[in-house]
Structure formats: C-alpha cells, structure tokens
C-alpha cells in the first residue's frame, strides 16, 4: 500500500451508539482506532486509514462511518429520501 493512498478518509464515530466491544480496534489492519478512557472507540491515527471498510461492516452498532475525503454527496440521490 503506497503512502499516498493512506488517510484519504473521514472517520466518524457516534459515541452514543458505541458500546465499546472493541471489534473495530482489534481487527483494524492499519491500527487506526483505539479505545479511550470511557471504553469507547476513538480515532487515534486517521492518517493511517486505508479505507478497507472492515470497521464499518463489522460494527454491530452501526457506530462508525468511513467516507472518502472530498465526496460531496453521501448517498446517491435516489436514496436521499429512503427507498
């Protein structure tokens, strides 16, 4: 993985939804996340993120979103108002 392709994402964690199970922290291949003092996930090294999407798919509480930098719309227009 080249240096250029790292850290091109915006990682958001919703602390209210995070239960601190630690799955994202344990399996993140780039060690981007860590648990904070309250036991919840925290983005520690956003510059290392390789946008693999593991944390997003494996979060049982839907508490993490990883969005590539510079993308204006988050969802295609047909999804904006629900399906």
């Amino acid at each position: 993985m080249s240096k250029k392709s790292k850290g091109q994402t915006i990682i958001t964690i919703y602390p209210d939804w995070c239960k601190g199970c630690g799955i994202c922290v344990a399996f993140c291949p780039a060690k981007v996340l860590e648990l904070d003092a309250a036991g919840k996930a925290r983005v520690a090294h956003p510059e290392e993120c390789i946008n693999c999407g593991f944390c997003e798919r494996h979060c049982p509480d839907f508490a993490i979103s990883v969005v590539p930098r510079g993308r204006k719309k988050r969802l295609p227009p047909e999804l904006e108002n629900g399906v």
Binding site: T9, C52, E56, D61, F62, G82, V83
Partner: peptide, 20 residues
Amino acid sequence: MSDVTELIHQYLRHNKKFPH
C-alpha cells in the same frame, strides 16, 4: 464500501430506541 453505515441508517426505524 464507503456508503455502508449511511445506507444502513436509511433502513432503520429511527423512532426506536438506539443503540439496540
């Protein structure tokens, strides 16, 4: 890959209590 969480939120019933 990157729409995962936003997509899921579109399908959830937000009048229910979250986190589940």
